[in-house]
């Protein structure tokens, strides 16, 4: 418990999480307002439409999570951390828990904020959350954000360098997964197993995979599995190498 407190203090006593958090919430909600506000009778606004810009927030949250650990390496505070808590796995898990929790909260803010602003701007649209699927599409963002943060934290621990980790995470999630699709013949088959594609399947945004291998919750488990594998690899590495 004291480890969680320590990590919470560390996270919130620097400025970058506040800026990232603000950007992560404001950008997608603002974009949703633009999107929905411009929609006239022609465009059908549904529950998933309100989540179309959430990936903007997810990207910023991944930057936040990566920074939470790479700045520790940059300022060598990771050494103080490991000095205070020689059990590195416990220290890093506490950090992961705090960052993931913050990411989850930000995800819910983004999701319900986008949904709320859409309701305000388009009262006529059918935006009521009246099915389990609707709830999954909106409330599910918190889970996606939290798991994306876990993945980003894992990458941050492995790479240790801010620029490298941020570039890797953004280029991978925003470009590589899309590019893969364009590879002749094998592209589509690889694309359907990409983690962020899986996250989109869970929410119900992005392109639909034909003949999906799982249901939405299956895709979430798949996404979680990949995040946890990356985190585990990071923990093992951090435990082995010199701080």
């Amino acid at each position: 418990m004291s480890l969680l407190t320590a990590e919470r203090i560390k996270l919130f006593s620097t400025r970058s999480p506040w800026w990232c958090g603000l950007a992560a919430v404001v950008l997608p909600i603002g974009f949703t307002a633009l999107l929905v506000g411009q929609a006239n009778g022609g465009l059908e606004v549904g529950v998933t439409t309100t989540q179309a810009t959430a990936n903007l927030g997810r990207s910023v949250v991944m930057v936040l999570a990566a920074l939470a650990v790479t700045t520790e390496y940059r300022f060598s505070t990771i050494r103080s951390t490991f000095q205070a808590t020689p059990n590195r796995i416990a220290a890093l898990l506490a950090k992961t828990a705090v960052v993931a929790a913050l990411a989850g909260v930000l995800g819910e803010l983004v999701a319900f904020g986008s949904w709320g602003v859409s309701r305000l701007l388009k009262p006529s649209a059918d935006l009521a959350l009246d099915s389990a699927d609707d709830w999954r599409s909106v409330a599910g963002e918190g889970l996606v954000f939290a798991l994306a943060a876990v993945l980003a934290l894992g990458v941050g621990i492995l790479v240790r360098q801010t620029a490298g980790a941020v570039a890797l995470l953004l280029v991978y999630s925003l470009l590589v997964e899309n590019l893969i699709q364009l590879i002749p013949t094998a592209g589509e088959d690889i694309h359907r197993w990409m983690p962020f594609v899986a996250a989109d399947q869970f929410i119900g945004v992005g392109q639909r995979i034909p003949d999906p291998a799982f249901g939405p919750w299956g895709y979430l488990v798949y996404f979680a599995g990949i995040s946890l594998v990356v985190l585990a690899a990071a923990l093992v590495t951090a435990n082995r190498r010199d701080a």
Binding site: V60, V63, T70, A167, L170
Partner: peptide, 8 residues
């Protein structure tokens, strides 16, 4: 971090 995030 900020510059790379914006630029990507």
């Amino acid at each position: 971090a900020g510059a790379i995030s914006i630029l990507l």
